[in-house]
């Protein structure tokens, strides 16, 4: 009865499940941050999050996340053809609601990270 896509799954799923849950939350924040400057397409987002944010995301995790954010109005998407004969790509960009969410999640993440780091450092854990 474990589900790597539901919030109560990590407790029962062991280290892999906990890692998946943690990654899911971090991926959303990193993705919103990545889209802050310009629009990206899915594969580009995945590769940049892996290479630059150090997130070990599975190939099939990024599109359901993008789909949820699009459905929630945090990102907007459009198909673009960059040049004649090129394959069309679906580009995602932040909406105003997405920018507000990024500010909120960033502040929350910094607050938690600061508190948790201080807590873990208290006994050298």
């Amino acid at each position: 009865m474990t589900d790597k896509t539901s919030p109560d799954a990590g407790l029962a799923a062991g280290p892999e499940g906990r890692k998946a849950q943690l990654l899911k939350g971090l991926a959303e924040l990193a993705l919103l941050s990545l889209l802050k400057d310009r629009a990206h397409y899915g594969l580009e987002i995945l590769d940049r999050l892996r290479a630059e944010a150090g997130l070990d995301l599975a190939e099939g995790t990024i599109y359901p996340l993008l789909h949820r954010l699009e459905r929630g109005g945090l990102v907007a998407a459009e198909w673009r053809m960059e040049s004649e004969g090129a394959r069309p790509r679906k580009y995602y960009q932040l909406t105003d609601a997405g920018r507000a969410e990024l500010v909120s999640q960033s502040a929350e993440w910094r607050r938690i990270a600061t508190s948790l780091t201080a807590f873990l450092d208290r006994s050298g854990a």
Partner: peptide, 20 residues
């Protein structure tokens, strides 16, 4: 292989759709 079984991958979208 990176996406896994199509039914399992589709399940992730359906999970999100029903929960949303």
């Amino acid at each position: 292989a990176n996406f896994g079984a199509p039914e399992a991958y589709a399940g992730k979208f359906l999970d999100e759709m029903y929960l949303s």
